[in-house]
Design a protein around this nucleic acid. Structure first.
Lengths: 194, 194, 194, 194
DNA sequence: AATGAATGAGGATTCATTCAT
DNA sequence: GATGAATGAATCCTCATTCAT
């Protein structure tokens, strides 16, 4: 019997290395060799497991989006009350795990990738739609017909914040950023009630 | 017979072609040859005028940012009253000239470029700072200490909207988008007054 | 529990798969992996049994030539009289077993292989020599000194026909082809007698 | 004004080098780099002029076939009388220019190539058809309905001879070979008349 | 016996850039 | 000013082959 069960380990290593490398370089123009080296293997093995550079990129995207989705789901489960649910989504978006320089850089580059690769675009669209529906569902009980508009507004602010963070030089401050958006939300809610 | 005064024309052609090509490809991975061909000259000439691919990209960025800045300035000059000035900035951001698929795609890619190239980063920072100060200045008379926060909120929404637009499949609708942000602004102002 | 006696079975599978794969691809540029997969095993096992890709190719060649040789011998044994013996050789060359698209393609590629690999060349030479002596022996009783020339003429026609068949789009028609050569032979004999 | 008119020179060099390299290696598995080096340039330039390895191979094939066609046409023009015309075709096929080890090896590999590449197959088919019609036309005046069969017989012998020559170790002897086929032809004609 | 794991070597292709004219 | 010519360096990808289990 041969050495077995390496595949999932290698795949995970490669995905992690891909995100790290893209984050580090700030570009999608990273070579498969670099990624493989960071993951501790030959580039040939990377191709063996993923078939192509693009497939590797897409897997990395899927991974980031999956992690994010899981975090949002977890936060939603723990939240009680509509407003709390909306805040939970925001907070998850800026949790330390997601809102790291590295991941933010990768995220931005995935947006760029989505311009060219249909599959990447599809993935991001799914993410957007889910984010939007999560927010809308959370806001509807209290805001009724204003919910979709508010949800969009918040979604746009989350993405815009990522964009800004990608430009900052220091490590992005998730807490502060989240607070800002939550404040905007609070104000919006308050304004609406007035 | 060397044609005199060709330089500025050639440079402009190349910059325009660069933006068009990046917008069309949705990537920075466009070749100098393609750009040059679109501009109706040899790639060698492109190098002659700009020295390197990177320099050409930066010039294109500068061009986009300059156009945008001019538009904002124009709108500001025509606006009367603080709120009108804030709305003017928003509207300029989504004017037909700026908020085209092509330009949006280029813009997004410039953000990605800024991750790697300090000069690109510098340019985008200047743009951000100016946008922010324009908005803050416009809002301060009526909002006082709330102005910076509101300004940041709007700025983030503008950028977030660009990001979203880059993902959409149809031509982005500047009017609708601008209206959404203006509505958010109005609400924020109203909420603040309450 | 190691299965005993698998070796000959595995080897035969691999040889068959090699011919099939070359025939199917029309090239020697088939990978060991593909061959092994077609034979239902891992490429590592193929190497275990044959040591190298080249050795596998040579074994496949040997197989084809051996089959052909057997067929010729069988036909000769059944033939009575000089002319019948010559016709038997021709017929064997275009028997359904040998004159299949797949085998013809492999055959042609083996000729190409013989350009580079001495062992492959040696094998083909042996085949040629045998074919020639079979024909010569068959023709000598009736044709005397003309036998060698006639034999060569027929041999050349057989090989040329394979070449043509390799180019045809439909499955090659062994019966018709053999008939043509036999007719040529008959004419030659008749012409000689005249 | 730049250095001009290199293209045809380079293309010719590359085609010549391709044939030489294939002939020398006896395989299509020659690298573009080797070909380019033999032609005295970088492999990048080879790609610049031909676009791909396959295109280069096809151009080389076309060249060989064109040369052959020209030689046949020349020989036909000089021949007087039906039989002489048929002999001319044969002789041209074994002229020193065409029947060189190198070219024969390339020829054989082109046949192998034709198994995979439709364009290569098309080219060879054109060659075959032309050869056949040349021979048929030459033979019809004297042989009438027997012409097509005879033509095919000769064509097959020509190709078979190339195959045999590819296997020989010494430089192939065009004169002797041609003579053999001509003898076969003569005999066939004589036989037919009988 | 058998195979998944792993890689080194190599090859086609691309491209920014330089240069001679 | 302008360009065809030319290339070095890189990158993705493939594959025969080896090895540990």
């Amino acid at each position: 019997m041969p050495k077995l069960g390496m595949e999932p380990i290698r795949r995970a290593s490669l995905i992690k290395a891909t995100i790290a490398e893209i984050g580090h370089a700030g570009t999608l123009e990273v070579t498969v060799s670099r990624i493989a080296k960071r993951a501790g293997m030959s580039s040939a093995l990377a191709h063996h497991y993923f078939g192509s550079k693009e497939a590797l990129f897409l897997a990395a995207m899927r991974h980031v989006l999956t992690l994010y989705g899981a975090e949002v789901r977890g936060a939603l489960a723990a939240a009680e009350g509509p407003e709390a649910r909306a805040r939970a989504v925001i907070r998850a978006s800026f949790s330390p795990a997601n809102f790291r320089r590295e991941v933010v850089a990768a995220w931005l580059n995935f947006y760029a990738l989505a311009q060219t690769r249909p599959e990447a675009r599809r993935l991001l669209r799914v993410y957007q739609r889910r984010l939007l529906s999560n927010l809308t569902d959370a806001l509807r009980p209290a805001q009724g017909p204003r919910a979709p508009g508010l949800a969009r507004q918040i979604a746009v602010m989350i993405d815009g914040t990522y964009l800004h963070a990608a430009l900052g030089s220091e490590a992005p401050d998730g807490a502060a950023t989240g607070a800002m958006i939550e404040a905007a939300l609070a104000q919006a809610l308050q304004g609406g009630d007035a």
